[in-house]
Amino acid sequence: MSGKSNVKFFYVGIAIALLLAILAPFLASSDPDGLESAAGGIVEESKISQIEATEPVVSSPMPDYSIEGLGKGGEVAAIAVGTLAVLAISLGLGKVFSKKI
């Protein structure tokens, strides 16, 4: 395994990830996912509205991958921020855990 080609893999990976971040707000389906859709189909309505009224235990800064008032641009930014956060955490963890060669 050569270090140089791993660096190339790294940059190609980031480029693809950021491209996905830019495209997702425009291309991704807004239909509910499998779990939400199943809930909508088989759980009684009174229970669904009760579930929906329940706030998340921890409130998140960018709920539903959006930034308030920024529209699609905010969604792109939110997903890009998340992508870079995952990248930074992985690199940080890698630095802490990895063996030196």
Binding site: M1, G3, N6, V7, F9, F10, Y11, V12, G13, I14, I16, A17, L20, T83, L84, V86, L87, I89, S90, L91, G94, K95, F97, S98, K99, K100, I101
Partner: peptide, 15 residues
Amino acid sequence: LDEMKVPILAALAAG
């Protein structure tokens, strides 16, 4: 994980 594999892991995680 070694220093060579970290970039691969990080790129996959971001993707």
